[in-house]
């Protein structure tokens, strides 16, 4: 009895710790005051209109979306190749190679950012959105491989052989059988790398040159107290977008499982 009681307290405390800051975000976004403090003074949507009038913000959003979409597509493409190779083929030094590919997962991001910067400058490459994309592909690829490996792993190898046996070529087998069956994995890989790239700060800060990205813009705005409510409004929009995105990802994942008749073994939601 007592034990159960403490668990309840712990669980509630944990949830408050996790979600209280996120609930505070919309509270102040709709609050009619510049200062972020209680008590709330009144309802207002002026921070949202102020947000829309910020020219740098729209540029930052555009840049971030471009980076996130491009990185997600590139990282997922690389992930498909690597996951397919690691689950289907045997080759020398496989364990070591896969380990090296997965290493950025645990490397401190600041180290990756700094060393990339040094190398790029040394090569005489000028900093741009593409250098950020390069860095983001590097850190997203391990995630995509992890997601896609499990998708490829659960694929029965005799499905491929059956299609091949029935006269299809290797390429059409991939298109007709493998791709549709790993599609849920590909979609969640795209969404996850999109999300990682969208809110990534360190690499963007180091490698973007003069181009603003969304996290870098947000960080820079905190220097001006008057801009903080606008950031709150922006944060509210981003949280809503994340929830929508995750819901879509989960929908596709579940539909994929139902379609292939598999058993649901967890997911994001």
């Amino acid at each position: 009895m007592m034990k159960g009681g403490w668990f309840k307290v712990y669980a509630i405390g944990y949830l408050v710790f996790l979600y209280a800051p996120i609930i505070i975000l919309p509270m102040f976004a709709f609050n009619d005051a510049t200062v972020i403090a209680f008590p709330l003074t009144g309802f207002s949507t002026r921070w949202f209109s102020a947000m829309l009038e910020q020219p740098t913000l729209s540029l930052a959003v555009k840049n971030s979306l471009f980076i996130a979409v491009t990185s997600a597509v590139l990282a997922t493409t690389l992930g498909v190749f690597a996951a397919r190779a690691s689950t289907r083929y045997r080759f020398p030094m496989k364990a070591g190679l896969m380990g090296l590919i997965m290493l950025p997962l645990v490397l401190p991001e600041i180290i990756v950012a700094v060393s990339l910067l040094v190398v790029l400058l040394g090569l005489g490459v000028s900093l741009s959105l593409w250098t950020v994309i390069l860095g983001h592909v590097l850190i997203c690829t391990p995630f995509t491989i992890a997601i896609l490996s499990s998708a490829f792993q659960s694929l029965d190898q005799s499905l491929e052989e059956a299609a091949y046996d029935l006269g299809e070529s290797a390429a059409s087998t991939f298109r007709l059988i493998i791709l549709p069956l790993v599609m849920p994995g590909i979609i969640s890989s795209l969404l996850i790398s999109f999300t990682i790239s969208l809110d990534e700060f360190i690499i963007a800060f180091f490698l973007a040159g003069t181009e603003p990205t969304l996290p870098v813009f947000i960080f820079s705005q905190f220097r001006f107290p008057s801009a903080v409510p606008v950031i709150m409004a922006l944060g509210t929009v981003l949280v809503c977008l994340s929830i929508i995105l995750l819901t879509i990802a989960e929908y596709f994942r579940r539909r994929g499982i139902a379609k292939s008749g598999g058993k649901d073994t967890g997911g994001f939601l």
Partner: peptide, 27 residues
């Protein structure tokens, strides 16, 4: 294998799960 005059029934049956029965048979 895709040019041999043989066809195989696999141990796991290898039925394409995303297709209908008819699409499987007519594959």
């Amino acid at each position: 294998a895709n040019q041999r005059p043989t066809n195989m029934v696999f141990q796991s049956y290898a039925i394409f799960p995303h297709l209908t029965v008819g699409e499987n048979v007519g594959f």
